[in-house]
Design a protein around this nucleic acid. Structure first.
Lengths: 222, 222
DNA sequence: TGTGAAGTGTGACGTAGGACACATCGGGCG
DNA sequence: CGCCCGATGTGTCCTACGTCACACTTCACA
């Protein structure tokens, strides 16, 4: 897996690093592989590494006492995760789980800290990442307050489509429901509605096609 | 208002600054005063300053298209706000409103950027602040998914009490409802329930007293 | 010290969405 | 190639919560 660097240096965090530092860091990374459903870390675990998704999809998940789950984000190649505990707690604040077969690059906190100590201006990248994420969460919170399940489902679908019209749904409806903050059945009915309205088409189990993006976007606003 | 520095240097952000830089910064700050209900900034406004609460309480508010409001946070003396747009957008992403008569210290982004350019390690403080806030928002999001209105009300009450048993409610029930993400009437009924159960006492319009913190905490978890 | 507007308390009723129960479908593995 | 299990689709019923409607309280200010 020698082609690891191209992913690392397209990362928001490490992309700004001067080549020699990036090279130094690369020498210390490890590549790990997980299958669908595997836990990468659990809430409460002591944290020592941050991760960059190399291939596949990872979900960050919060769990309620009674076992219900809420998917906070879905991450694809290039995305950084697990870095939060480097800055505050030291223990993981949520669960990370493989949604597909994934390869993740693991970097030790200490190695990153070393780089940050040498080049504190790299912290600008960290700050930008956190700020962006904070906005996203704030928006999700507003959505939870202001939109109904159908609206939230439309919104999450558009997010997962990621600008494409044809896309592969990386989540089961159960997991999507966790993201939307509703029951699986409700979300299913919302999707069925979009199909009936002719805004969305589904073929096979996970090939989705957005037919009327306009209307979906409007429904995601009201 | 010469006593401005003591507040500034107890701030997470500026507290770590070496005295001479703090002094330099202090010379460039402005103090502004707002009355209850005044807007400090609105969503979409171009942003040029960050603020530190000197006295009083400030609410950060999201607004829906139809006018409904959700209070994202309530901030007291020493709290930093309005700094987000320094790191990404450049426009304000939410509304800030005075809950009481407040004094805020305003600092120009450019002045802060200057300090950060000289001392990039101050960014550690920024990162810590953002990380903490991100956790808080993530938790609020989980709460919105997993807890019922009564549970969320209990939780927000405990937060607003801020560790004290006797406290002054800085919000109207309307605003508290915005924080909880429910209707004013429901929240009122939740509070009435806590009073009936003997967990809480209310005197006057806004003097609250937590009688049974234990039970409230349990109810805020289920 | 009285008065009104803003804030609070509480019931009646309607509805979005959760829980449950099942039918059906699809694709991965033997 | 077929079998089986997890994922999806859909109806029925029930509950938590929103909306509306109105009485009561507080306190700011005249």
């Amino acid at each position: 897996m020698a082609a690891r660097t191209p992913v690392l240096d397209k990362t928001d965090l490490f992309g700004t690093l001067p080549p020699e530092l990036l090279e130094q860091l690369r020498g210390r990374t490890a590549l790990a592989r997980y299958r669908r459903g595997d836990s990468i870390f659990d809430k409460g675990d002591p944290a020592t590494h941050l991760f960059v998704v190399f291939s596949g999809r990872v979900a960050i998940v919060a769990k309620a006492a009674d076992g219900r789950e809420s998917v906070l984000t879905v991450l694809g190649p290039g995305a950084l995760f697990g870095e939060m505990s480097m800055f505050d707690g030291g223990v993981r604040s949520a669960h990370a789980r493989a949604l597909t077969t994934v390869h993740v690059i693991a970097v030790e906190f200490d190695d990153v800290r070393e780089v940050l100590a040498t080049r504190p201006e790299v912290l600008w990248a960290v700050v930008r990442i956190l700020a962006r994420r904070l906005r996203a969460t704030d928006e999700a919170l507003s959505d939870a307050m202001f939109l109904d399940v159908t609206g939230r489902t439309a919104k999450r679908l558009l997010e997962l489509a990621d600008g494409e019209d044809d896309f592969r749904m990386p989540l089961t409806q159960e997991e999507l429901a966790g993201m939307v903050g509703a029951s699986r059945e409700r979300v299913n009915k919302a999707i069925a509605l979009f199909v009936k309205l002719g805004w969305l088409e589904i073929s096979g189990r996970s090939r989705y096609r957005i037919v009327n993006r306009e209307e979906l976007e409007i429904r995601a606003t009201i």
